[in-house]
């Protein structure tokens, strides 16, 4: 299977080094769950791969193109939903999606048709002409998801895509991701919702303090660590497994 993403010795430094020589590759059609504690470097990795941070060490190839040299071409074939992304919230979702379509050079009529169908699918058909400043977090997240799918990307980068979604929407997104995989799309996504990552990812990569500390299928990782669940595996590997003790301490403190 062809390689969709290839990363070699990828490092990034601001005041201090926040990514340390990452090495991994992703095949076309794979779903990668990219997980790690807060501040581990997940979003920075995704921003580098989507051409948003051009200044880094090592190499990153996405869709067969070098990120440094072909950022624009890469952006044409990927979809990206950032964490805490802004929306022009005085616009309606339809206006916003039409705008996104313009930036991708999509035809106006087709964009509106597609946007309407996607809005309907995500249960937003009655709100399509309302300004988004009245939307809940979940509704905004749905609009963002649609904006990332609008141009039919080959590779989809999702940074916390399930944040704020209600249970039905989470199930819908899980289904959408599965269907996209069947359609041959590559999905690289980070999330804190472990059971979803466990269930839908072909492969899981765990990053901690800028270092890739695990990379494999859930079964492989589970076999190595004998954890039972991804949640347990995650806490074991990222060194945050003292939750019980911390909870007891908390009770003592508030007494």
């Amino acid at each position: 299977m062809a390689t969709a993403i290839e990363v070699r010795q990828l490092s990034k430094r601001y005041k201090e080094k926040i990514l340390h020589e990452l090495d991994f590759s992703v095949s076309e059609g794979e779903i990668i769950g990219y997980i790690g504690p807060n501040g581990a470097g997940k979003s920075t990795t995704i921003k580098i791969l989507t051409g948003l941070i051009p200044d880094f060490e090592g190499s990153a190839i996405v869709a067969g193109m070098d990120v440094r040299q072909h950022a624009i071409e890469i952006k044409r074939v990927i979809g990206y939903i950032p964490e805490n992304a802004a929306l022009y919230d005085v616009l309606t979702p339809l206006e916003f999606l039409e705008f996104v379509g313009h930036l991708y050079g999509l035809e106006k009529d087709k964009t509106i048709l597609k946007a309407n169908e996607l809005l309907k699918l995500f249960g937003l058909e009655n709100s399509r002409n309302d300004r988004m400043n009245t939307f809940s977090k979940g509704m905004r997240q749905k609009v963002l998801l649609i904006s990332g799918l609008l141009q039919n990307p080959k590779i989809l980068f999702l940074d916390e895509p399930l944040s704020g979604l209600d249970a039905n929407a989470v199930i819908l997104v899980k289904e959408v991701l599965q269907q996209l995989k069947i359609a041959g799309k590559t999905i690289f996504y980070s999330s804190h919702i472990m059971d979803v990552v466990e269930k839908i990812s072909d492969r899981i990569m765990i990053i901690n303090q800028g270092k890739l500390i695990a990379n494999g299928t859930f079964a492989e990782l589970n076999e190595q660590a004998q954890s039972g669940s991804l949640e347990q595996l995650f806490t074991n590997l990222t060194g945050t497994g003292e939750h019980k003790e911390k909870a007891s301490q908390l009770i003592d403190i508030i007494k």
């Binding site: 624009i72 071409e73 802004a86 022009y88 930036l103 991708y104």
Partner: peptide
Amino acid sequence: SDNTIILPKPI
């Protein structure tokens, strides 16, 4: 914040 909308697009 505007960048998170525009810069990820092929522009």
